[in-house]
Amino acid sequence: MKPLREVGILGFGGYIPMYRIKDEEIACAWNAPTSGLPVVEKAVPGPDEDVFTMSYEAAKNAIARAKISPNLIRAAFVGTESKPYAVKPTGSMLVTSLGLDNRSLAAEYEFACKAGTEAFQSAIALVGSGMLEYAMAIGADIAQGRPGDELEFTSGAGAAAFIFSKKSEETVAFLEYSVSYVSDTPDFWRRQGQKYPQHAGRFTGEPAYFNHIISSVRTLLEETGLKPSDFSYAVFHQPNTKFPLRVGELLGFSPEKIKPGLLSPMIGNAYAGIVPLGLSAVLENAKPNERILVASFGSGAGSDAFSFVTQEALEEKKNLAPSVSDYLRRKKYITYATYALYKNKIVR
């Protein structure tokens, strides 16, 4: 897909909570083996954090890099499956807390782990059609996993915000092309009113994750005529450390191209936040005129694939806000008991 007018990323910003728990600590709590764990450690939000507060900080960083007054922004979309209110938009809370224009669109997107890039598509479309000049799309999640379930070893937290505008000298990267690909594939779900999601074990792999990412990326390559060798970086959805490397291998992207945006080993799977965060990390490392492949995956199931090309403005704007690596460095390890307290698994 291509919008009517060219669209670029004017500003971007990531956010990762400061607390970390090591997978080994979780394994010890459940008396499980401490070898072969899916990630090293994962990010845990403090007791006063939720998807709104994480989105707020990511957005604040994105606005700093966009170098525009927040009241020029006319859309606040949040892709998440862990919004603080089941009914009451996080988007409108962001409009008020960040000082966006009240004449804004504000909504949440839900498509499991690809809700963030789903929000991208809407923001891009509104800017690309000329309806809006500036639109913000955020991917943010505090991933849920039942205590003791294998998801508990990977369910992380994080957020990243992107402000889209028409392509200009101010944009840090422009959108070359995008593809969305979906089918009814029940690999993971959470029923209305339930606290934790259910998943279909190994069924989440080949028919879900791999099939959908491969379909969206191959379509993008076919329709653009691009080859994997044309890309300097690739960001794939990262439910663990293994899957993104494996799907890269199947599609012809080497680990060197994937690793700059591979955050799950350090923060776990931040669901709808992880791919936008991975893209933020890549932008903070990239140089102008490099091509980036982004392919999300959301259970249920689907994948959005994008090709972005970096621009000159990136060099200067990188340093206008704390980077993903700043947030990665800022960490405090907690025990399983503190983790259980912070996650409301034990309540005083």
Partner: peptide, 19 residues
């Protein structure tokens, strides 16, 4: 930054402010 200050129980409003 904006953070949660308190919640009016499980069902009520969540209060936010700068911390």
């Amino acid at each position: 930054i904006v953070r949660k200050y308190r919640e009016e129980g499980e069902e009520g409003l969540i209060h936010y402010g700068i911390k």
